[in-house]
Design a protein around this nucleic acid. Structure first.
Length: 679
DNA sequence: TACATACAC
DNA sequence: CATGGTGTATGTA
C-alpha cells in the first residue's frame, strides 16, 4: 500500500522552496494599508490547491474577517510584534557598530557553542526514533464509518470551529482551526457543501487504543503524544530484528503503517523514522497523508539545512516572522547566522534554535502537571449576574476535576476576555490548598470584582465579556485523608497517586515524618520508569476521567483530550532536502580573525541532489550498548509536598474540628490584602 | 509574584 | 450569526 516510493525518495519530487508569502500570494486586498497577509494562517500550498484557488480562498477569508473584532485584535497584536521586531533590529544595529573586539569575542563564543553541539550530536548517533501520525484522524474515523461522506468535503467540528477536515475539504481551503462558517463559505463559493460531523471522542479514544496496541509491538515503551500520534524508540527493535539498515527502516515503517490500517479497518497513518525525535516528527509530516519518510544519519544534516524554520516544533507564526526579519528562513540560515541569533534572542531561545537547526532533540524533561483550568466562551455580555453564575459553574467543574485527580490548588488565576478579544488575567493566591468549588468560586469572584472595579468607572460601565476562565495552580497531591463525603480517599491503582502512595509507604514511617515540605522520589531503574510511563493509560483510572493520564516524565507531550488534531496550517512545504553523502563533518574552524556578521560556521554541508535512497547505503555505525536505552540515568521526580498536604490537612481538621476539606467560602478580607482566606 | 505571549494539539 | 479549550514554557517587570 501507500507511497513507498515516496519514502525512498524523500527529496526527489518536491517543489523548490516557495517564495515568501508576499511574493507568492501577494495581497490584493488592503494594499494601501499595512500588509496583514500573514495573519491569514489558513492558506498554504498543500493538498493540491493551485495558486488561483489559494488566492481566491485568501480573499474570501479576508472579506469575512476584515471587520470582525477578532481580526482587528489580530492586527493590533501584529502591530505590537512589528514594534518588537524594530527594537530587535535596532539592537542588532548597535551590535554591528560595537567594538570589533566585542564582536570577535561573540563570534568565538558562538563557535565554541556550535562545536559543543556538534559533539553532542555525534555522541547521540545510533538511536532511532519513529513518529507515527494518523491522517486526519477524527475525520478519517467518521468517513470510514459512513462511506457516503468519502467524496464530500467533510469537517469534524461545527460552525464555530473546525477540528479536522478531510482532503476534499482542504482542496477548497478548509483547514483545522478555521471557524466553520468560513469553511462553509469557501466550499459554497465553489459549488460544494461542507458537511459537518460532530466529534465522538469515545470512538476516537477506542481507535487510538487500537493504534497503540499495534505500535507497542515495536516499542513497548512508546509515548502517545495525543490520540492521533505517537513516538517510538526503534533502536532496540531494529537491532534485535536485524533491521538496522536503511532497508530495514523502510520495511519497519511500511509494516507499522500497514498494521495500523489493518487493525483499524482502513485508517491510514504517516510515519517518519530518523535519528531523533524531532526529525522523526518532521519526517512523518513530510509525505502525509499515507506516506513515510526515512532519514538516515548521513542525510540528517542536509535534511535539516534546507528545512524552513517553521517546521521546527516550537517555532510558530511569530517566531517565523521574527527570524524572517533577520533574513533567516531555513535551518541552515540559523546556523550561518548564529551570531546574529545570539544577539537578537535570549539565551534560551538561542540554545533552542541552534540545537533544533542541527537536528538535536531538546532535553525534553517533562514534569508533573502544574495546573488545571477551565474556560468558557459565550455571547459577549455585561450582565454581571450571568457572568458570576458562569464563574460558579466553572469553579464547580474545576473542583470536580481536582478531586478526581487527587489534587488541590493553592493559587488561582481568573481569565477575562472582552468583546474586543483582549485578554486579562488576575492572580489570586489562596490561604491554603483546596479542591472545593466554594473556595475556588470565592477566589474567582473576588478577582472578578477587582476586575470590574478597575475596568469600569463611575461614568463608564465595564466592557462586555465574551470569555471567563479559571486556572488552578500550585498543586499538591492528596492521598489518605477523607473525601468530601467522609469516605476514605485512596488513589486508584494505576495512577501516579497510587505510585506515590506506595513509595510513601515504603519509605514510610521511618523518620522524617516531621520534615514537612517537598519530598523527592528516586526512580532507580527502567522498570520503575516504565511503571510511571504507563500510568494514566490504564483502564483503572476512575470512570469519567476524560484525561487519559498524567504527564509525568512524558517529554514535550500534551495528552489532553485534544481538540485541534492534525493542524497543518500555513506550513510551507519543505523544500527538497539536499542530502549530504558524507557523515556530519566535524565542526570546522576556518577562522578568519576578522569579525564578520554572518559567521560561516560550521561549513556548509551541501552536496549532490541525489535522494536518500540513491545514496550508497552505509550500514549504521556499530555502537556499543549505549544509544538504545532511554532514560539511562536515574531520574528524580520532585513532588511538591504531598507530605505537606497530609500534615496540613490534619492540622486543618484539628483546627476546624470538622469533616474533610469542606470549608465555607470566606467572604472576609484576605490577608495581605490580596490573598483570599479560606475557612 | 504577576502578567502577557507563544506554542502545541 | 460568526474565531475553541487545556496545558506548558518563557520573558519581563
Amino acid at each position: 500500500m501507500a507511497k513507498e516510493g515516496a519514502a525512498e525518495q524523500p527529496t526527489s519530487s518536491r517543489q523548490p522552496p516557495s517564495s515568501t508569502a508576499a511574493a507568492d500570494g501577494g495581497p490584493l486586498y488592503g494594499q494601501a494599508e499595512k500588509d496583514y497577509h500573514h495573519l491569514f494562517n489558513f492558506t498554504n500550498n498543500k493538498a493540491g490547491m493551485d495558486k488561483v484557488d489559494r488566492e481566491k480562498a485568501n480573499q474570501t477569508i479576508y472579506e469575512m474577517s476584515k471587520n470582525s473584532s477578532y481580526f482587528k485584535n489580530e492586527q493590533r497584536k501584529d502591530d505590537n510584534r512589528k514594534e518588537d521586531i524594530d527594537r530587535m533590529k535596532a539592537h542588532l544595529e548597535a551590535y554591528r557598530n560595537s567594538q570589533p573586539e566585542m564582536r570577535l569575542k561573540a563570534e568565538q563564543s558562538v563557535r565554541g557553542v556550535l562545536q559543543r553541539l556538534e559533539k553532542e550530536r555525534e555522541s547521540k548517533r545510533g538511536s532511532w526514533w519513529c513518529h507515527v501520525d494518523m491522517d486526519m484522524f477524527y475525520c478519517a474515523v467518521e468517513i470510514r464509518d459512513d462511506p457516503s461522506l468519502k467524496d464530500k468535503p467533510v469537517a469534524v467540528g461545527g460552525p464555530g470551529m473546525i477540528c479536522t477536515a478531510n482532503y476534499v475539504a482542504r482542496r477548497y481551503g478548509v483547514r483545522a482551526a478555521m471557524p466553520g462558517f468560513i469553511g462553509k463559505k469557501l466550499c459554497a463559493d465553489q459549488g460544494a457543501e461542507l458537511v459537518f460531523v460532530g466529534g465522538n471522542m469515545q470512538k476516537y479514544q477506542a481507535e487510538s487504543m487500537t493504534v497503540r496496541r499495534v505500535l507497542s509491538e515495536f516499542d513497548p515503551h512508546l509515548k502517545m503524544g495525543s490520540l492521533d500520534e505517537a513516538f517510538l524508540n526503534l533502536t532496540d527493535y531494529l537491532k534485535e530484528n536485524d533491521l538496522d539498515s536503511h532497508e530495514g527502516r523502510v520495511k519497519v515503517a511500511t509494516e507499522i503503517r500497514e498494521k495500523i490500517t489493518e487493525a483499524t479497518r482502513g485508517l491510514t497513518a504517516s510515519a517518519g523514522i530518523a535519528p531523533g525525535r524531532m526529525m522523526a516528527k518532521i519526517a512523518s509530516d513530510f509525505n502525509k497523508p499515507n506516506g513515510q519518510t526515512i532519514i538516515e544519519e548521513r542525510d540528517a544534516a542536509g535534511f535539516m539545512d534546507s528545512l524552513s524554520v517553521r517546521k521546527i516544533p516550537g517555532v510558530g507564526k511569530v517566531g517565523e516572522h521574527k527570524l524572517e526579519a533577520l533574513n533567516i528562513k531555513t535551518c541552515r540560515d540559523i546556523l550561518d547566522n548564529a551570531v546574529l541569533i545570539t544577539q537578537a534572542c535570549s539565551d534560551k531561545s538561542t540554545q533552542f534554535l541552534l540545537r533544533a537547526a542541527m537536528g538535536i532533540d531538546g532535553e525534553g524533561r517533562a514534569s508533573e502537571r502544574k495546573s488545571f483550568s477551565c474556560e468558557r466562551t459565550f455571547r459577549a455580555t455585561q450582565d454581571r449576574k450571568f457572568l458570576e453564575e458562569k464563574l460558579r459553574d466553572i469553579a464547580e467543574s474545576l473542583a470536580e476535576d481536582l478531586k478526581s485527580h487527587f489534587m488541590r490548588s493553592r493559587h488561582i488565576t481568573l481569565k477575562v476576555k472582552t468583546a474586543d478579544f483582549k485578554v486579562k488575567q488576575l492572580a489570586m493566591p489562596l490561604s491554603r490548598s483546596t479542591d472545593e468549588a466554594d473556595d475556588i468560586d470565592a477566589g474567582a469572584q473576588r478577582a472578578f470584582s477587582k476586575y470590574i472595579d478597575t475596568h469600569g468607572d463611575d461614568t463608564k460601565a465595564p466592557p462586555a465579556i465574551r470569555l471567563l476562565g479559571i486556572k488552578c495552580a500550585n498543586l499538591t497531591h492528596v492521598f489518605g485523608g477523607t473525601g468530601p463525603d467522609g469516605e476514605e480517599r485512596e488513589a486508584p491503582k494505576g495512577t501516579i497517586d497510587y505510585f506515590l502512595q506506595q513509595q510513601q509507604k515504603q519509605k514510610g514511617g521511618k523518620g522524617k515524618a516531621s520534615e514537612v515540605g517537598d519530598i523527592s522520589i528516586e526512580i532507580e531503574d527502567d522498570e520503575q520508569m516504565d511503571q510511571i510511563d504507563q500510568m494514566g493509560d490504564n483502564a483503572d483510572a476512575p470512570a469519567g476521567d476524560d484525561h487519559p493520564g498524567n504527564q509525568l516524565l512524558l517529554p514535550d507531550i500534551i495528552d489532553l483530550e485534544e481538540w485541534e488534531e492534525d493542524v497543518d496550517v500555513n506550513h510551507p512545504q519543505p523544500q527538497p532536502p539536499s542530502c549530504s553523502s558524507s557523515p556530519c563533518q566535524p565542526a570546522p574552524s576556518s577562522a578568519s580573525l576578522q569579525p564578520s556578521l554572518p559567521l560561516p560556521l560550521p561549513q556548509k554541508r551541501q552536496l549532490p541532489q541525489s535522494s536518500a535512497a540513491a545514496q550508497p547505503k552505509q550500514p549504521a555505525p556499530k555502537r556499543g550498548k549505549k544509544g538504545g536505552k532511554r532514560n539511562q540515568d536515574a531520574a528524580t521526580v520532585c513532588v511538591s509536598g504531598p507530605m505537606d498536604a497530609l500534615l496540613k490537612r490534619m492540622a486543618d481538621r484539628k483546627a476546624a474540628g470538622g469533616g474533610g476539606g469542606g470549608s465555607s467560602a470566606a467572604g472576609g478580607g484576605g490577608v495581605d490584602g490580596e490573598c483570599i482566606e479560606l475557612d
